[in-house]
């Protein structure tokens, strides 16, 4: 197994009396990861740590093999991380090309590379001629795209995207999520996506980390977390539905009709072969079998409830 991109052990960060990170331990693989948590959970502190902006009080961390408590590594870390902040941000008086190329220069790109990368990144996020307009006139969607472009200017291996779909209309949101998905999958970037929009995380990430009160309360693949313990499948039936229902009951499966030609059956997806056989024997056929999963939102709310229950 390859070395984790982020490895954090018993990390503590205090702000006077508040423990923003309280013995946080975490190992993140590469690829797109969603970072979830209510306000005050420690997400921002974790991002600052990942950017090398703060040093932990206790514990150790390795991010892309670098130690954020070491000043030299902190600066190096910022060269390897692309950060897209949540709030509006621009460099006063500059247009998009100037802003992205200036930030590229500061990161260490040569003048020619900085300008080339500025245009390539802006092309990628789909900002056309507007890139030469003053950014103060930009719509929220355009600002979000420029923020993503500046994070990509130096082609970093790790991207920290803080609420990238904030304030976007449905079309803009879809476009942004397409970009994030592309970066995390086709471009094989390590993406940490902070979002309150759980469907966004579900759509773009494979892993999720849930924080609460400075601790990790759950970490794992979304597929594992959302798989239901009850093992329910949803099937679409054609042909003799009634006789298929009878056959199911006789075979010991409990089922409920949820609509015309639609049934919920208490069965594992691995039982699909048996279901197909039963359907064929009873003069029906199955048009589709799918696992019924919990949504990420259900999982998130359940984890928070459990975490708060433990805290009491």
């Amino acid at each position: 197994m390859s070395e984790p991109v982020i490895a954090i052990t018993d990390l503590v960060k205090r702000y006077r009396t508040v423990r923003a990170l309280d013995g946080l331990s975490l190992e993140l693989p590469g690829g797109p990861v969603g970072l979830l948590g209510p306000n005050g959970a420690g997400k921002t502190t974790l991002i600052k740590l990942l950017l090398g902006l703060i040093e932990p009080d206790e514990g150790s961390a390795r991010i892309l093999g670098l130690d954020p408590s070491n000043r030299t590594d902190q600066i190096e870390l910022r060269r390897r991380v692309g950060y897209m902040p949540e709030s509006d941000c621009l460099l006063p008086g500059m247009n998009a090309v100037e802003m992205v190329s200036t930030l590229g220069r500061i990161t260490g790109l040569s003048p020619a590379d900085a300008m080339t990368r500025a245009h390539e990144s802006l092309d990628y996020v789909g900002l056309d001629d507007q890139r030469y307009r003053p950014m103060s006139d930009y719509s929220t969607g355009m600002k979000q795209r420029v923020k993503l472009a500046q994070a990509l200017a130096h082609d970093p291996p790790l991207l920290l995207l803080d609420e990238p779909t904030n304030g976007l209309d449905p079309k803009g949101r879809r476009h942004m999520l397409d970009l994030v998905h592309d970066l995390g999958h086709a471009q094989q970037k390590h993406v940490i996506l902070c979002s309150h929009q759980l469907p966004d995380v579900e759509r773009t990430c494979e892993h999720v980390v849930v924080l609460n009160r400075g601790r990790v309360i759950e970490s794992g693949s979304i597929a594992e977390l959302t798989s239901s313990d009850e093992h329910v499948v949803r099937v679409r039936v054609g042909g003799d539905e009634s006789s298929f229902e009878r056959a199911l009951t006789q075979a010991g499966f409990s089922c409920t009709r949820t609509g015309p030609g639609a049934l919920r059956i208490a069965a594992k997806i691995d039982d699909a072969d048996s279901l197909f056989e039963l359907a064929a024997q009873s003069g029906a056929w199955l048009e589709g079998v799918e696992d019924v999963r919990s949504s990420l939102e259900d999982v998130f709310l359940r984890l928070l409830r459990e975490s708060q229950g433990e805290a009491r």
């Binding site: 950017l51 902006l53 600066i75 190096e76 910022r78 060269r79 991380v81 950060y83 902040p85 709030s87 509006d88 941000c89 621009l90 460099l91 006063p92 802003m99 930030l103 500061i106 990161t107 260490g108 500046q150």
Partner: peptide, 13 residues
């Protein structure tokens, strides 16, 4: 005011 510090300080500056 423009949030430029968020961009500058996430760089090796």
């Amino acid at each position: 005011r423009a949030g430029a510090h968020l961009l500058y300080f996430s760089r090796p500056l």
